[in-house]
Design a protein around this nucleic acid. Structure first.
Length: 569
RNA sequence: CGGGACGUAGCGCAGUUUGGUAGCGCGCAGCGUUCGGGACGCUGAGGUCGCGGGUUCAAAUCCCGCCGUCCCGACCA
């Protein structure tokens, strides 16, 4: 490709709309342009990089035995209603109607399509296992598209679906995909971590996220400093503290706390630490009332409450709920709650006694509240938000909080979709069995964003060579010197002959502009030919990411560039 | 959707407080001088000031409504 023809106008300054490095650089280096929030045009440079990631993913899927197919983006509503996701996916799904009034949706993921497909073709246990995948644009009406490519309303996803005869087979298929995902991340040169995660709406039990380590990711996760436990914050647990001895119980005493409803205010007034206070959060769970108890210095993880109460929908009490149930916001305590209130206590509550908590009376709290004597606990659950420094649930080591972006997510679904969709096969004993499924997603364009986020410096992008749009740029510096121009042309031809992906920067601009653009775009290797070099018969090479520079004889330029490329990241 | 910020030339911004000829830098076009790290001079093109109403002799500027964009929150590849 000749730079003079390339559809790429680099920007000297980052558009104001871009906040994070990857977004700014992909815009500045002419990889993408925004059409609207969450929807981008891929320019030639960006498209090449995207396709490289796509190809890596494809090769690893094929190597893992998955077979590529292609399903429509536009989908009928019916199977989504059968699985319940027409409702549960809700607003996140783009929904439309055709001219006959038939309900359609734009595919946000494809369990509802692939499951009936396989059920219609493969009807015997002899056919299994099978794993199908596609690489296709997905559509989600996100609450808030953001960070450029990181959360788009349209995004390129590789989605694979495995179908097995039994759970053991499913776990084996899952394991194969798990390893393939690691190879994808490795080949893309990414720094990443595999973490246990929350399954969200997809469902299923076991699932893992492949998390790129970045400072700006949307996702928080913890990992253990001793063992290899790592989990998304939503799913993370900490080792429960030892129960405290039940001796020396204080009497339950009411104390006035006028106008103090917050943990901080009460703890200051009574000179008690927040950790000595018992927070009592109230939720509505499908019409029922749930009180969640947790020490005052910790936060409730609502996702965990939701899981504990599943399938009832859980939402925090509104002002109306408080009024209706006769509870006083800011002064709720567990003692004397009606029988029909489900009291859930976090495991950490076992490690405390003589709690300070609400008196269920405006402007009063109690001290010396104790479980068993003063209040009951219906269920002990893990409902707390894990914090940095909490003990690891596996080994007791220290949990460290870190940030990342989710590139891939793999799930063991079991019969979550095959059962409602009646996707069955005939097993060896002649009985109909639902497929044991797994599903596996990778955000292909998000990998581009993550790599841009991990690999950049002040001058621009420093791609791993596997992702750079081209491998080499040839830069003739003095376009007024016919000998230089000619040498550049010859080099360009030689690289092409050597099957190296090469750009010739044949623009009639100053050398500085070419250097700056080459750095910004991030070609792994730059080959510079100039007047002085021609005279001495040499070229200058630069490895972009390492910043390493060397000289080579003009005639050996291609081999020298190949060596530099081989040693690059 | 709730909270915050913003919308003026392709990009970055000033001008809005106090209404009165729409500006600067980069980029773009032409000519000349330059030519190994975003050169310089001269000339030039390019704007319904997000959109719609209103106030006013006069609105980028004041008022109302809408749209769009970005950031923080409930989500997920």
């Amino acid at each position: 490709m000749r730079m003079s023809n390339l559809f790429a106008r680099t920007l000297r300054e980052a558009p104001a709309e871009a906040e994070i490095a990857s977004h700014q650089l992909l815009l500045r280096a002419a990889y993408i342009r925004k059409v609207m929030a969450g929807a981008y045009t891929w320019l030639p440079l960006g498209w090449r990089t995207l396709r490289k990631v796509e190809q890596i993913v494809r090769e690893e899927m094929d190597a893992a035995g998955a077979q590529e197919i292609r399903m429509p983006i536009i989908l009928p509503a019916e199977p989504w209603k059968v699985t319940g996701r027409w409702q549960t996916y809700g607003e996140l799904m783009f929904k439309l109607k055709d001219r006959h009034g038939r309900e359609l949706g734009l595919g946000p993921t494809h369990e509802e399509v692939v499951t009936p497909l396989v059920a219609g073709e493969f009807t015997s246990y002899r056919d299994l296992p099978v794993n199908l995948y596609q690489i296709e644009w997905k559509y989600r009406d996100e609450f808030r598209p953001r960070f450029g490519l990181l959360r788009g309303r349209e995004f390129l996803m590789k989605d694979a679906y495995s179908f097995d005869r039994d759970e053991e087979g499913m776990r084996a298929s899952y394991g194969v995909m798990f390893e393939a995902y690691k190879r994808v991340c490795d080949r893309c040169g990414l720094q990443y971590r595999v973490v246990e995660a929350d399954p969200g709406q997809i469902g299923g039990d076991v699932n893992h996220e492949f998390m790129a380590l970045t400072d700006v990711g949307e996702d928080l996760f913890v990992y253990c400093d001793k063992c290899n436990y790592a989990a998304d914050l939503e799913a993370a647990t900490a080792r429960a503290p030892e129960p405290v001895s039940r001796s020396n119980l204080e009497p339950l005493t009411e104390v006035p706390t006028p106008g103090r409803s917050s943990i901080d205010a009460v703890s200051q007034l009574l000179d008690r630490k927040p950790s000595e206070m018992l927070k009592c959060m109230v939720y509505d769970a499908g019409g029922g009332t749930v009180a969640v108890l947790i020490p005052g210095d910790r936060e409730v993880n609502e996702e965990k409450v939701r899981r504990a109460m599943w399938p009832a929908p859980v939402k925090p009490f509104s002002e109306d709920d408080f009024a209706q149930r006769g509870l006083i916001k800011g002064f709720v305590g567990p003692q004397g709650l009606p029988e029909d209130v489900t009291v859930i206590a976090d495991h950490s509550v076992r490690a405390g006694k003589n709690w300070v908590t609400g008196a269920n009376k405006t402007d009063f709290h109690v001290t010396g509240a104790n479980e068993g004597r003063d209040f009951r606990v219906d269920r002990w659950e893990d409902v707390s938000q894990v914090r940095e420094g909490d003990p690891c649930p596996v080994c007791g080591g220290r949990l460290i909080l870190s940030r990342g972006m989710v590139l891939g997510h793999v799930y063991q679904l079991g019969a979550r979709y095959s059962k409602p969709l009646k996707a069955t096969f005939v097993d060896e004993d002649g009985t109909e069995q639902p497929f044991q499924m797994g599903c596996y997603g990778i955000g292909v364009d998000r990998i581009v964003a993550a790599a841009a986020e991990q690999f950049n410096d002040e001058a621009g992008l420093t791609w791993p060579k596997a992702l750079a749009p081209y491998e080499v740029v040839v830069i003739p510096t003095n376009m007024d010197q016919p000998a230089v121009v000619e040498a550049g042309e010859r080099l360009y031809a030689a690289f092409q002959e050597g099957r190296i992906e090469v750009v010739l920067d044949d623009r009639v601009v100053t050398a500085g502009v070419k250097f700056a653009d080459a750095d910004l775009i991030g070609y792994p290797v730059q080959v510079v030919v100039g007047k002085r070099g021609i005279e001495s018969g040499s070229v200058d090479l630069k490895a972009r990411a390492a910043g390493q520079r060397e000289k080579a004889p003009l005639k050996d330029a291609v081999t020298a560039a190949q060596h530099l490329l081989a040693s690059a990241r």
